[in-house]
């Protein structure tokens, strides 16, 4: 255990009505870290968060907080706070009362509460909203109140369950930056649940990719994007071409009827592997200059780049490029060794 570790999940499993939701989750979270649990819906990320928050008891396994077992401690005794998916504001209280809820329970001096509530409203840019009823707020404003209500208690860890899920794209981008700033400013550990890979890449220090109740990969956003551990991660984080290949020998892989140099080693000779290539790493060059050749099937304009499908030797390559090639033109395709990611077949 490192000194900076604050939460550790040990062999956590959870079963709902005989359906396993989490299988043997082991994870530690460092102090002041922004950790994101990322995965498709139903992957167990929210359940993991609820187990940390104390709203769900694991079927087996332990939750450690600063080294102490808190598995059976009720939520109200835990030094962490949660921002709920649908905000869960108290409808019978105004904004200030909502934010002051936790402080009032701790029986703190009224004047101090008022001051803290004001500070929080400043932090989340809702000055002057004290007396507003929560029903009269927009989704984004309710979200800020929910965040303020949790943060005012100065928790060691803030748990956030898809807090931006209900906001529109522009608001969400703004809130992502704001949340990240708040996290840095207050130096609080954030455990963040989302299914949005872009959100995870933007905000996190560490991403935990989950699928079907199993942790697929833990790493920094850059690691996870550039070195996905398996085809699921590669597919889930960003778009990918995932192709069947054969590892001829160390540093040489064959796919699409061509042998490519790569940087991977340690496979059996002629082992079947998954080859992952990011669409932006498939370089289109004039006909005759590429390692392989293909025909452009379709072109879509995506704003910053064009998205093209190029057929070559029975494989449809997804290609992102700022330069457009016309449909039906024959192009060359180059893939650099650095951009080829070899993964063991899961099955």
């Amino acid at each position: 255990m490192t000194n900076h570790e604050i939460i550790r999940l040990v062999d956590i499993s959870k079963t709902f009505d005989d359906t396993p939701v989490l299988k043997n989750i082991n994870l530690y979270i460092r102090r002041n870290e922004f950790v994101t649990l990322l995965g498709p819906s139903g992957c167990g990320k929210t359940t993991t968060l609820r187990i940390i928050g104390g709203f769900e008891e694991p079927t087996t396994g332990k939750v450690l907080f600063e080294g102490k077992d808190i598995t059976n401690i009720p939520p109200y005794k835990r030094k962490l706070n949660t921002v709920f998916q649908r905000y869960a504001l108290f409808p019978h209280m105004d904004v200030a009362e909502n934010i002051a809820f936790g402080l009032n329970i701790k029986k703190i001096d009224k004047k101090l509460i008022k001051e803290k509530v004001e500070n929080m409203l400043n932090l989340v840019n809702l000055q002057g909203f004290e007396k507003r009823s929560v029903d009269s707020l927009s989704g984004g404003q309710q979200q800020r109140v929910a965040i303020a209500r949790a943060l005012v208690n100065e928790p060691d860890v803030l748990l956030l369950d898809e807090p931006l899920g209900a906001l529109d794209l522009k608001l969400r981008k703004g809130m992502q930056i704001e949340l990240k700033n708040i996290q840095k400013k207050l130096g609080i550990t954030f455990v963040y649940v989302t299914h949005d890979q872009e959100e995870a890449l933007t905000m996190s220090d560490t991403i935990v990719v989950m699928n079907e109740g199993v942790i697929q990969q833990i790493g920094t956003p850059i690691d996870i994007y550039n070195e996905p551990k398996n085809a699921f991660v590669a597919d889930f984080i960003g778009e990918s071409n995932i192709i069947d290949g054969v590892m001829i020998e160390d540093y040489l892989v064959e796919f699409a009827n061509h042998r490519f140099k790569c940087l991977d080693s340690g496979f059996e000779p002629n082992e079947n592997v998954d080859v992952v290539v990011r669409p932006e790493d498939v370089k289109l060059v004039p006909k005759g200059q590429g390692m392989i050749e293909g025909r452009v099937l379709s072109v879509l304009f995506k704003g910053v780049h064009y998205e093209m499908l190029v057929q070559s030797n029975g494989i449809k390559w997804l290609v992102h490029s700022t330069l457009m090639e016309p449909v039906d033109s024959i192009v060359g395709i180059n893939i650099l060794p650095d951009d080829i990611h070899i993964m063991k077949k899961v099955r």
């Binding site: 928050g53 104390g54 709203f55 009720p74 939520p75 109200y76 706070n81 949660t82 709920f84 998916q85 649908r86 869960a88 504001l89 108290f90 409808p91 019978h92 809820f101 936790g102 329970i105 701790k106 209500r149 949790a150 208690n153």
Partner: peptide, 25 residues
């Protein structure tokens, strides 16, 4: 909403306080 009750628990309310401050009102 069940999550409102969870939110109260999360903010430090034991079951009696949850009833007094959230469920009953």
């Amino acid at each position: 909403d069940k999550s409102i009750i969870e939110a109260a628990e999360d903010l430090g309310a034991n079951s009696r306080t949850v009833f007094r401050k959230v469920i009953f009102p």
